[in-house]
Design a protein around this nucleic acid. Sequence first.
DNA 1: CATATTATACTCAGATTGAGCAAAAGGGGT
DNA 2: ACCCCTTTTGCTCAATCTGAGTATAATATG
Lengths: 322, 322
Amino acid sequence: MSLQVGLSAVIVAVVDGEPHVLATRSTGPLGLDGLPFGAFDPEGHRTFEIGLRDWVQAQTGFELGYVEQLYTFGDRGRELPTARLDNVSDQSRIISVGYLGLTPEATEIGGKFDAVWRDWYRYFPWEDHRDGKPDCVASDLAKALKDWSDNAPSNNESIDRWTRASLAFGLDEHPWIEERVLERYELLYEAQIVPESWRDRGKDYPFGLGERVTGVQMRSDHRRILATGMSRIRGKIKYRPVVFELMATTFTLSALQEAVEGILGLQLHKQNFRRALEKARFVEGTGQMEPATGGRPAELFRFRREILAEKAALGVQTPRRK
Amino acid sequence: MSLQVGLSAVIVAVVDGEPHVLATRSTGPLGLDGLPFGAFDPEGHRTFEIGLRDWVQAQTGFELGYVEQLYTFGDRGRELPTARLDNVSDQSRIISVGYLGLTPEATEIGGKFDAVWRDWYRYFPWEDHRDGKPDCVASDLAKALKDWSDNAPSNNESIDRWTRASLAFGLDEHPWIEERVLERYELLYEAQIVPESWRDRGKDYPFGLGERVTGVQMRSDHRRILATGMSRIRGKIKYRPVVFELMATTFTLSALQEAVEGILGLQLHKQNFRRALEKARFVEGTGQMEPATGGRPAELFRFRREILAEKAALGVQTPRRK
DNA sequence: CATATTATACTCAGATTGAGCAAAAGGGGT
DNA sequence: ACCCCTTTTGCTCAATCTGAGTATAATATG
């Protein structure tokens, strides 16, 4: 039997401190959002990455900068029977190679590719802890997960479910671990709290929980791929200076901090964040000032790209506030 | 055009502090070592991981424990024209999904699958820095890389080459960064120091450097996949407690340290290594003793698997000695 | 019973981290 | 001009962690 291979892309940009992803809009019968997705053409492209760049370029008009492979999804169980993916016949498609791309600017999208930038918390409202634990976690999801645990077939299973849920979502005194985005989404999928769980089995979604709680669903397994991308970037930001791929050539330290905070969904301690930046020698001041801060003008900084080569080149530290 | 998808596995075990990988022995006309490799059968297996487990089980008789996806290789440029891969016709093969598997014991291999455990430094002699920088790096490879830099077409290119080489291999005062295994291998490939570079272009290997310096080659791009696996495990060991997947249920702290040292190719500071283990509460003593240490008997410890769930569950810290 | 060998315990200075306070430099209104 | 608000930037301090070294304990060996 033959397989077709698709490429899917999680393309991230930060707009005013809010992380956005490039999403394809509401096509097909179900009218769901999706990620940019295209077939990989082994004739035309020597590598996946070249294929991806070409195809994003052709369809959205902008050039990808930083790109890394995320994961290869080959799980037949997760397929959406009703999905119609461009250029890929459902019969043979099994595999999609996910990529993460980071761009410094959310260029407006033109061309035939009907894509828009969307706040990524639209799909994952429970992931934004910048103003403390959001209500949707603290009450609605906690309750739904509790129900799921209580309705387990055995007592052991019940305990196991609640242990996993409370660890993943930072309930019952457990700390919130921001990079476990995928783990949380998969738990919600397993607990059938998220509409995809029902849709993939051809059933109607029975819950009363709205998008405010469960987030906006995506077609096929795209929300899972997005979760993988978010996990990756949240983890990587701590040990590789990848944030700078999301910034313009110059930026204020506050803007940089807001970008990191947006990605992590957490607030950071300003003074310590800056101290860590200085110690790692990631940035250097340009004499210029940015006056429109609303207070004292801020100096504009630039990323010292040389540091990527120098020594260990660790990531940005993320000292939690409070 | 259709593609075939193969699964390749980097399966690691530590024998007496020496990391080993499962290799397939010298089949085919060239008589090269390779990694276990099999076609992915989308009909028979719902996921890659299930497929991999099944097929390793069937061919070697043992059960994989910890498994994670490494990377998907789809690079046509790296293909070996003369390779003959079992069950996969060369015509259509482009993609292979690499997996990393960790097992606590190097079970002897039986069955039709002609596999052996091999010290992984056999393929990467320059990666073992447990007794300081090895000669093959300090002299032979440094010289070969210097030649490659000097023979660059332009002066800029020459500087760029040497910068990359000295950074990757820790020359000229740069520190050795153990997890950059893949980067180093790819540099040697690019610099045509490694036999694969010539073989893949259908030429004979012209150098006088022996296997003591360039390591033992593998068929197709398997040495690159192995390098990817080594990079992954060397990086991950620091932020996830994966070493324990390589240990039996009980072990002495020295054996644990030797395993980590073997993986990283570095020596660690014993006291500080233990202090870090204690602080993270990764292990707990069983009252039992291991008498055959050659000196004072050592207590046998066990991994506290609960910690995987608890809090952040960081990795083992790796305080360098000297 | 001394010696070699390995395991384990303890100490200490320097660096790093978490947290908070204080001053500086703008804008806007009165 | 002056006060108030806001944001940037500079500085301090205690608690903890890290790197490195020293000392002692428990075996086997000759």
